[in-house]
Design a protein around this nucleic acid. Structure first.
Lengths: 165, 165
DNA sequence: CAAGATAGTATGTCAAACAGATCATCGTGC
DNA sequence: GCACGATGATCTGTTTGACATACTATCTTG
């Protein structure tokens, strides 16, 4: 707080004056706008990409878990995965440990698509955070990660080191 | 990068591993969830609150400007302001400098409502960033402000110090 | 002054999200 | 072992909300 006193008030972005909701919304909008070119070809758009990303983790990636993490309704989840499956990006596999659940598994094609999309998304992210230095961007990401990390995804049911639960 | 080497990889939130879109989405979702109790009574919900906030700045708050800042379609803006006006929170005033434009002006009731809502929103924000210390939260906010500050709202048409352009 | 651009509004259309029901399976308590 | 409630997934139907479109009034530029 002390180091800002010699800067004109209007020129300084006063942290307390920023509405978190507005700022987050603006940033997410900018991100989605920039990412449009990357994810628009994917079925499901941004959410399709996110589902692929989570499926790539290969841990407890049944539909309910993914839906919970992404804040997607489970009925919506069904046709998002439908579209990804039709496009050959993922397959549904019954969870051996719970025959109600369907694991979402990346196909080879899905993995390749995700790989190139991820690389381009990293570029997009760098551009969106372009107003920050590299160190500041890392700091921002790590703070963001800590803020969102407090519901650390119940992996209690996922014993074993295998990529599939 | 160097200071994380002595920490187990899984326990450390690796900044580079976090998908910016996912993290921002999750955080915004959490924020909206927490803010629901505050803004649900307002016409337009979260966006109604944001419109009130911008109207309270009293500078260049015509509908197009507000819509641009919030990423809202102008046809949607119309009925959002309609609802706020019906609720007696704002009034529409023709911009003396541009008779096409309508300035969105807070009423007394709108100001009071915004005041109490803002106070409660500040609480919500503190809760959402609760995983961070106060200093870290300030840091996060200032980084966020800088990231989103690069389109600094064209005030060239707004000469004069008056609260109404 | 003419022509194009922009602010705001009204209207029609359509997709995307939600609610609810259904079925299969799991977990728990008895 | 079995009855019961809870949960994962899917399907269906409904509706809200956003968008495209069109229109008027006004500004701006040549």
């Amino acid at each position: 707080m002390t180091q800002v006193n010699d800067v004109p008030v209007q020129a300084q972005a006063r942290a307390a004056d920023v509405d978190l909701g507005q700022a987050l919304g603006a940033l997410l909008r900018r991100y989605l706008e920039s990412a449009r070119g990357v994810v628009d070809q994917l079925p499901g758009g941004p959410r399709g990409f996110q589902i692929l990303s989570i499926a790539a983790e290969g841990v407890c990636s049944n539909q309910a878990t993914i839906a919970l993490r992404l804040g997607i309704d489970r009925t919506v989840m069904t046709y998002l995965v439908d579209d990804l499956e039709k496009a050959g990006m993922v397959t549904r596999r019954p969870d051996p440990a719970d025959r109600r659940a369907r694991q979402v598994v990346l196909t080879g094609k899905g993995g390749k698509t995700l790989g190139s999309a991820s690389a381009r998304i990293r570029e997009v992210e760098r551009g969106v955070l372009g107003a920050l230095t590299d160190d500041e961007a890392d700091l921002f990401r790590s703070l963001l990660a800590r803020v969102t990390a407090d519901v650390p995804a119940d992996h209690s049911a996922c014993s074993g080191p295998a990529p599939d639960c």
